[in-house]
Structures are given as structure tokens and as C-alpha cells.
């Protein structure tokens, strides 16, 4: 009696390992996904190493020697900004904020979306109706407008942005998770668990959650991309944390100081291209993952 569950669990673990290896094989077979992953890894490495690559003191405006808006040169590969700071250095530090906010906001969004989605799929009757109306509400409210309102009402800072993005972007995840929950709960083993006396918590936690997680993972990578864009948008609108370098605030500063008109392309293009590249990478990885993990997209 004692060894049976353990060996059962071991069997399950082995099965999951095998499945993970299979997922990786299929993922690695998608060239675009792999390219995205490699580029992302590079961006991550740069963001993590920012304090080493570009010590923060070198961006302290009171200790600078460079002139304002210097064009690219050997000393400043991407030139300098209106205060004389190295644009490349700001770009490197901006990667930290963009990625941090992207991931943190996505985590918030995923936790809310998964919980609400599972609940909406699992419960029936009035509870489901109420949850679905809430989801519908967040689906139709323009999330950028809601995020702007939230970030101007809450006190200014990075975490406000995280919350504003996270709280407004979970609804579509909830719907995807709900449909997956419905399909899982229709399977015989759930009925068996219920017949054996499994409660709501047991069924959701032990059976539904592991089954929806892969889908959530694929959705996460896609959401990070839009969270990065949302962060840049909010910073660009002046709602970000002004004391942190971010790609959005670099673009705001470029626009406010008239850098585009003056032809200081080295201050306008790099942050914009950085956003494009990172979002593209997340999209590539997310699409590849999705096509591997999403049951409706498999077996083509």
C-alpha cells in the first residue's frame, strides 16, 4: 500500500519529464522561436549585468564631461542625450525596467487570470455568471485608459505601473483558462475524483491547475510583450517612474526636447528599436510555445 502511491507519483513525474523533453524538442524545431529565445537570453544577460557594464555613476549628470546631444562616436557608441548622458548606457539600464515591469505585470496578470479563469470554469450557476460578467467588464474596458487612470490615481512609482498593467490585462487569459478548465473537467478522471469525494479545492489544485499551466505558460510569454509595450506607453505619457531609466521615458524625453526635429536620431531610434526587438522576441517565443502546447493548435 505504501509503495504504490510513491511509484505512481514517480511514474507521473517521469511522464512529466518525458513530456517536457518532448515540448523542448518540438520547440527547438521551430526556428523562429529559437532565434527569439537566443536574442532574449542576450537581452537578459545585458540587463542583469547592467551595473557592471555601465556603472550608475557614469550616468550621473553632475559628473559628466560629454556635451549635450553628441552624435555617436567611439566614446559614446550611440551618442549622448540632452543632459549629456551616454544613450547606450541608458538603453542598457532601460532594459532592466522594461523587463522587470514586463515580467512582474505579467505575473500579476497571470495569477489573477488563472485563478479567475479556473473559478469561472469550475463553478456553475450564479457564481459563474457573476465571475463571467466581471471578466467581460475587464475585457471591454480599454485597458490602456484604465491603466492611465490607475497610475495617475495611485502614487507614482514602478510598482504602480506593474499593478496598473497587471490589473488591466488578465481578462483574456481568464477566458482561455476557463475554456481549458471546462474541457478538462469534462474528462472522466475528474468525474472519478469527484466520485471519490474530491472537493473543489482538490479538483482545482491537483487536477485542473497542472492541466492548464502549460497553456498559461504560452500565454505568459505573449503577455510579457504587450506588458513591455504598455510600460513604454505609460512612461511615454509621463506616468512612469521618472527616476528610473526606461525605454518609454527615453522616448518621452526625446519627444519633449524636440530631438526628432533636431535630427538627433541616436536618441530617438535606439529605444524604439529596443522595444520592437524585445517584443518581437517574446512574440516569437510565445507563438512557438503556443503551437507546441495549445491543444487546439497541435497535430497540424
Amino acid at each position: 500500500m505504501g509503495s504504490a502511491p510513491r511509484s505512481g507519483r514517480a511514474a507521473v513525474a517521469a511522464q512529466r519529464r518525458a513530456r517536457a523533453a518532448e515540448v523542448w524538442r518540438e520547440f527547438a524545431a521551430t526556428r523562429s522561436g529559437l532565434v527569439g529565445l537566443v536574442l532574449l537570453a542576450a537581452v537578459f544577460a545585458v540587463a542583469l549585468l547592467a551595473p557592471v557594464l555601465v556603472p550608475l555613476e557614469t550616468l550621473d549628470v553632475t559628473r559628466l564631461t560629454a556635451a549635450s546631444n553628441e552624435p555617436p562616436s567611439a566614446a559614446h557608441l550611440l551618442g549622448t542625450d540632452p543632459s549629456g548622458r551616454d544613450v547606450l548606457g541608458m538603453l542598457v539600464w532601460g532594459a532592466r525596467v522594461s523587463l522587470l515591469v514586463g515580467f512582474a505585470a505579467t505575473a500579476v496578470s497571470m495569477v489573477i487570470g488563472t485563478l479567475v479563469g479556473m473559478a469561472a470554469g469550475h463553478f456553475t450557476g450564479l457564481t459563474q455568471a457573476v465571475i463571467m460578467r466581471v471578466v467581460d467588464f475587464f475585457l471591454v474596458v480599454p485597458s490602456l485608459v484604465l491603466a492611465i487612470v490607475l497610475s495617475s490615481v495611485l502614487s507614482r512609482g514602478l510598482w504602480t505601473i506593474v499593478i496598473a498593467i497587471g490589473v488591466t490585462s488578465w481578462a483574456s487569459t481568464a477566458r482561455v483558462v476557463r475554456s481549458q478548465t471546462l474541457s478538462i473537467e469534462a474528462r472522466p478522471y475528474i468525474e472519478r475524483a469527484r466520485a471519490l469525494g474530491g472537493g473543489d479545492g482538490h479538483i482545482l489544485g491537483r487536477h485542473v491547475l497542472p492541466a492548464v499551466l502549460p497553456l498559461v505558460l504560452a500565454n505568459t510569454t505573449l503577455t510579457v510583450g504587450s506588458a513591455v509595450i504598455a510600460e513604454s506607453t505609460l512612461s511615454f505619457l509621463g506616468l512612469g517612474d521618472p527616476t528610473q531609466f526606461s525605454w518609454g521615458s527615453m522616448l518621452k524625453s526625446a519627444l519633449d526636447t524636440g530631438a526628432a526635429t533636431a535630427g538627433f536620431w541616436w536618441f530617438v531610434l535606439p529605444p524604439g528599436l529596443a522595444i520592437v526587438v524585445v517584443v518581437l522576441c517574446f512574440t516569437l517565443v510565445g507563438r512557438a510555445l503556443e503551437s507546441v502546447l495549445n491543444p487546439t493548435l497541435r497535430g497540424r
Partner: peptide
């Protein structure tokens, strides 16, 4: 109401 950068350009 030009910014210094716009003015100089």
C-alpha cells in the same frame, strides 16, 4: 515655444 534643440535646428 521651441525647445533649445528645435531652436538650434
Amino acid at each position: 515655444g521651441l525647445t533649445p534643440a528645435q531652436f538650434q535646428s
